[in-house]
Each structure stands twice: as C-alpha cells, then as structure tokens.
C-alpha cells in the first residue's frame, strides 16, 4: 500500500454508493406505505422527510463527484442547453418544499438563449444552492442569468445573507468547514470545482458570494466562460 489516502477515498466512494442505494430504497418504501394512507402526505413531516432526504442525497452525489474530480475520473461533457429550461427545472426539483413553505420565486432568463455547460454537474450546484436558500431565506428566491459576455447565473434570496467570514473566503471554500455552524463547506467547495472545470479561451469559471442583491439577502453567482 502506497499511502492510506487513496484507500480511504476508495472506501469512501463505495460507501457513498451504498448509502445512496439505501436512501433510495427507504424513500421508495416510504412512498409505498403512504400509498395506503394518502392523508399522511399532506403532513408537514412528510415535507421534512422529502427535503432532508434530498439534501442527504445531493450531499452524497457531491461527495462522489468531488472524489472523482480529484482522481480525474470525472467525465466532463459541456454541450448546448437552453438556459431557461435548465433553471426552471432546478426550481421544479424543489417545488414541493417551495409550495409547502409558501415561497415565491422568479426567473429572469432570456428564453431563447442556449449556453454551453455540463448539465449534470451544474444541476448539482444550482439545485444545492436553491435548496440552501429554501432552508435559510424567508420567503423569496430570484434567479437571474446574464449571458451577454459569458454565462453568469445569480441566485438571490431574502434571507440573512452569507456570514461575513464566508464572504472573505473567496476562492478557498475548504476553510468553510465549520462544525459549530453546521456548514460543511462542501456545497461551495464543489461549486468552485465545477466552475473551474469549465474553461474556454484561457478563461476559467468561478464562484462569487455577496450580500444584498435583488432581494436584500444572499447572492450566489457562478460564472462560466
């Protein structure tokens, strides 16, 4: 054995697979049980189970993807996608919870624009950020995309915004691992990695955090060349 690290990551990767499978089976079993008691589906707890399990699932996916990016096994497939359709779907993924919590959302994206990106990777990033916004913000989410120069997607909310130390970490989100605040740093770290995989004309993608913006809360930006 050369070093303990590759061994650990290999075990981590296979464990993540295993956990994902279990999670999927649990959710399917729950659905089957609820088929018989349809009323239970309207309970708040059902929404919680759905939300938390999708959070666990997306965390596991990001872990696995991070592992693959580090080992250069991550397939990368940028191609043309309609940007509006893409953003709308990311919102739809969270629609049960958005509805349950009474959130409103707006999408300001040119419906005719096609952009180049890796759909499944960017989906993990954007969906995760929207998920966080639903968790931390009060009642509103706005997604804006500017495609005049490059692809610049901003996800704004009306929550308390990103904490100061996080804003200062720009570009080095591994520092964000902080158990006392519950932030694992994974989401932003992953977003940064995905952004950087997107390259064109000697430019690299990037991630920016700020506060204020359209709704006065947190603003997450991912810029792809």
């Amino acid at each position: 054995m050369k070093s303990s690290l590759p061994l650990f990551s290999t075990i981590l990767a296979s464990t993540v697979h295993d956990m994902k499978n279990s999670l999927g089976m649990m959710l399917e079993a729950l659905e089957a049980i609820l088929e018989e008691t349809p009323k239970a589906k309207s309970r708040k707890e059902y929404g919680v189970v759905q939300y938390e399990s999708s959070r666990v699932n997306s965390t596991l996916m990001q872990l696995l993807a991070t592992y693959k990016i580090e080992n250069e096994q991550m397939p990368f497939n940028p191609s043309y996608h309609n940007l509006y359709d893409f953003i709308e779907e990311q919102i739809l993924m969270h629609s049960p919870l958005l509805n349950a919590k009474g959130f409103t959302y707006s999408i300001d994206v040119d419906e005719t624009v096609d952009a180049i990106f890796d759909e499944s990777l960017l989906s993990m990033v954007v969906s995760n950020i929207i998920g966080n916004a639903v968790r931390y913000a009060h009642s509103e989410i706005a997604i804006i995309a500017d495609t005049s120069k490059n692809v610049n997607i901003s996800i704004c909310d009306n929550g308390p915004g990103y904490p100061g130390p996080m804003l200062e970490m720009a570009g080095d989100y591994l520092q964000g691992v902080n158990q006392s605040t519950g932030s694992t740093g994974l989401g932003l770290f992953f977003a940064q990695q995905v952004a950087e995989l997107h390259q064109h004309d000697n430019m690299k993608g990037s991630v920016k955090l700020s506060n204020g913006g359209l709704l006065g809360g947190g603003v997450f930006q991912i810029i792809l060349p």
Partner: peptide
C-alpha cells in the same frame, strides 16, 4: 439513473 449521467451520455 441513480447517479451522475455524464459517463453514460458520453
């Protein structure tokens, strides 16, 4: 699919 589809797509 259960996971990231890029490898499948390509």
């Amino acid at each position: 699919t259960a996971e990231n589809t890029t490898a499948m797509v390509m």
